[in-house]
Amino acid sequence: MKIRYWGVRGSFAMCGKEFLRYGGNTTSVELVTAAGARLLVDLGTGATEYAKTLMAGEFGQGKGTLTVLLSHTHLDHIQGLPFFTPFFIKGNQFRILGADPAGSSLKGTLQNQLAPHYSPLNGLENLAAGVSIESFLPGSELTIDEFEVTTAAVPHGTMWTTGFRIKADDRVVTFLSDVEYPAPHRPTREAFALAAGADLLVHDAMHDDAAYAMARGWGHSPVSAGVHLAGAAGVGKLVLFHHSPDATDAQIDKLVEAAQARTSIPVSAAAEGAYHEV
């Protein structure tokens, strides 16, 4: 299985020279099996770059099918939706799977994103492709083509997000973005179970440990939370993700260095356009 990072930035898309190497687009990650089955996680602005590669193939002719998992509906994880060009081609088929936000529905939330005040698309019904929006309960097991996905709710400030354990080609990738544990060294049982023995762990690393003191309760992890979980859960590789909008390339280099000094597990920071062979 291959994992490719199309958007790695948290909260806010960042433009400019200081963000070129790791990239300024918000979250979107693609998984591809050896046989070519694909799965996309999140629809941040990075998804619009991914869309360009899809349009060059069968999606450009209206013959593509794809499933998208959403961790949650904070804007940085869905703001690529109105600009995801394969949605505008008749014949393409999409499933968007995610949990219902508290007190609301997944479909209602995405519909609201495209409400006429906010978007000239004026609602999901105006997307030319077939887009089916399906809610699941966190904790569900999903089978999507060759992917077996375990889902679980993990804490994210005053709300929660869905973490994913994705298995294919006999390999496991765990995706834990937008998560804040009761303490950096106390992952929740659900998060631990998702990460246990994973070959690769993609983890929220929004704050460096010093900045975290000021940001406690905002719903994101310091780098040390991922480092700790990776060690405790025995993962093969740790990938720092959801980089702070203020973190320049040089600062992210330093975060990786500092994290690597504290663990023997290989640590890297997700970079736009890069991939890992799992």
Partner: peptide, 13 residues
């Protein structure tokens, strides 16, 4: 309502 709508908890913390 419309401006408040962009900070509904579904979209923004």
């Amino acid at each position: 309502q419309v401006i408040g709508g962009i900070t509904r908890h579904e979209f923004f913390p």
